[in-house]
Amino acid sequence: MKPGARLKSAACDGEFVVIRAGGGTLTCGGAPLAETVAEAVPLDPAHAGGTVMGKRYVDAAGTVELLCVKPGQGALALGGVSLVLKEAKPLPASD
């Protein structure tokens, strides 16, 4: 996994671009994210909640950052720990 890679969820429609790459297993809807999905798997209800187009998701330590480029019903996690929405401070349009 490296920055720019596009990862897909096997458990939902979600697709993500890697902004910051780190170690550990990334999952969406409970299933590992991968560049190609061989087989769809059911969504784990413990990892539901969904992702939103254009939002960035990070782990608490800031080692991993994913950009949602296609939303889905699954929630993201790193090593079983949920990723959180990266809040951006809204800035006035400057250009």
Binding site: M53, G54, L67, A88, P90, L91, A93
Partner: peptide
């Protein structure tokens, strides 16, 4: 670089805002 421009946009613009 792509990475420079992309970080500027992601850091300052809300997608579909």
């Amino acid at each position: 670089r792509h990475s420079n421009l992309v970080s500027y946009i992601l850091g300052t613009v809300e997608f579909g805002g």
